Simulated scan of single mutants.
Amino acid sequence: MNKKKYTVALAGNPNTGKSTLFNVLTGLRQHTGNWPGKTVIHAEGFFTYKNEEYQIIDLPGTYSLYSNSADEEVARDFIIFGKPDVTLVVLDATALERNLNLALQVLEMTDRVIVCLNLMDEARKKGMIIDTANLSKKLGVPVVPLAARNKEGIEELLETIARMVHGEIKTTPLAVSYSRAIEEKITKLLPLVKEVVGEEYPARWVALRLLDGDTSLLHALQHHRHHFFREGSAHACHCAKSI
């Protein structure tokens, strides 16, 4: 009987040490190419922990997942359609306010998230103290402090990944509350979105993207679903514009 190979996505802003973490986890067991139909680099690697195999996909470094660029579309689509067993969101501990924006977007897309608080060595040099336990409580997902280039925190991260893929960690991701007007529109659109996407995709997040006029998501949804989905998704998009 073949062992299950778990898939891990690695997301984060540029310059957070994401590639360093990828290299530390995979060593020489990695290769690069292009994403299908894109000029965006695809980096993929493998690692073993407690006799179990993991495939890790290093997503393009982005500041958001709003599909404003090919990099953002690739990262968004892999999290939504690739359905990784775990998504690691790498944050720069010295610039949390800027980095948390991406983390919150990922939390709207999946509940299988571990926040990697990297560059903790730099934060300490600057006299910064971060209450990781409280941050974890507020975000509703594990937060692991790291200094990837020194391999600090790697063992804790690997153990946290293993526990999450085996269902030993239950998360309650922070749900961002928007203005009253936006929340009312989401409420109106949600039933139709759920009718179209069912439980396969995060309905609230899809509704938000449709309200924002994200046509690239509509095309991606149509591509990943059967032809009958086209009519329903187009109707949902039309309703979003009219709300």
Rank of each mutant, 00 (worst) to 15 (best):
D214Q: 07
E44G: 05
L107K: 09
K126N: 10
K83P: 15
D58C: 08
L28S: 15
V176H: 08
I243E: 05
T187K: 15
V144K: 10
Y54A: 11
A207N: 01
A203S: 06
K241F: 13
L102E: 02
A11N: 03
L28A: 12
Y63W: 10
L104C: 00
L189H: 03
E183Y: 06
D121S: 11
P60E: 06
G213T: 00
L208C: 06
S179G: 03
D131E: 13
V206Q: 07
A93H: 05
T171N: 13
A147Q: 08
F78P: 14
G198Q: 09
D85V: 04
G17E: 03
V89G: 00
A148G: 09
G140K: 02
D85N: 08
F47A: 11
L139A: 02
L117W: 08
N2C: 12
S69L: 05
T171D: 04
I80H: 07
K185V: 15
L218D: 04
N134M: 15
A240H: 11
K5H: 13
L59D: 12
I114G: 11
L157Y: 02
A93Y: 10
K241Q: 14
V24T: 09
W35D: 02
M109D: 05
L208Q: 02
R76P: 09
E52P: 06
S19W: 09
P173L: 08
I56R: 05
M120H: 14
N13D: 05
I114W: 12
A234V: 04
L221Y: 01
V193A: 08
I57H: 03
L146I: 00
K38I: 02
V113D: 06
C239D: 12
A123M: 04
S233L: 14
L91W: 04
E53Q: 15
R76K: 09
